[in-house]
Design a protein around this nucleic acid. Sequence first.
DNA 1: CAAAGGTCCTGCTCGC
DNA 2: TGCGAGCAGGACCTTT
Length: 271
Amino acid sequence: MPELPEVETTLRGIEPLLCSHTVAGVILRTEKLRWPLDRNLETRLTGARLKSVRRRAKYLLFDFGRGTLLLHLGMSGSLRVVDPQIPAGKHDHVDLIFRDAGTLRLTDPRKFGGLLWVDGAPELHALLHNLGPEPLAKEFDAEHLYRCSSRRRIAVKSFIMDQKVVVGVGNIYASEALFRALIRPDIPAGGLSLERCRRLVREIKTVLSEAIAAGGTTLQDFQQVDGRPGYFKQNLLVYGREGQPCPSCGKQIRNLRIGQRSTFFCRSCQH
DNA sequence: CAAAGGTCCTGCTCGC
DNA sequence: TGCGAGCAGGACCTTT
């Protein structure tokens, strides 16, 4: 599910509801997600006040002062703030119950998401310290992309999904950004000119910003913190549109497998 | 049976 | 020949 816009949407939903509130209890309903769940989470969190929530790449970082809770939503995870009286469903794996506020409930059918307690500075954690720049930051620019792509033979689509190059671009927005930038997804990254890098950077920033404004994209599982879906799906130009006419030239949108992932593009517009 | 929004790990290949 | 970076494929899991 979640690429950067969905995680950002989740962050913006949670923050005003839970920040500065104190954890009253924790319920774990599964042994493990991506990693085994910390059985001491209840002890670590009960009585702790949520100082801030922020996002780095597709991770959410809950700062409790005494430590940080690191959360990744994987492919099918989502977070809601609910009334704790609402009974948990089959795939509701974790509840963080806040005093005088809602309960943060993690749902994740495929269990590819992960929850990790980090004692020290979270940015030093192995999961975070080798990540590329944030796509919406000014450090992510044409020169950066051009430098990284030099001599790389990997398909440009897999390249922009590499979190060491730039974070947050997943399978949906990679296809969308390449379509907007008129770049074929299967050409080697190393063949891009600086000018084409400039266009690609611009389109990545644009499509991610637009998707955030729409509350993300819901294909199946994703929901915003209040339970509404993301509304960007209707704005997807190529993703999931195999066989439909290209919005630009009218020729059929193609589906190609790159790196085991479905990739949508227009043969006649993208080169 | 195939595929679905992600990412880590393994083992192979290619170029110095 | 050997090394290391880069790359492809598999694994994780449940549902449709």
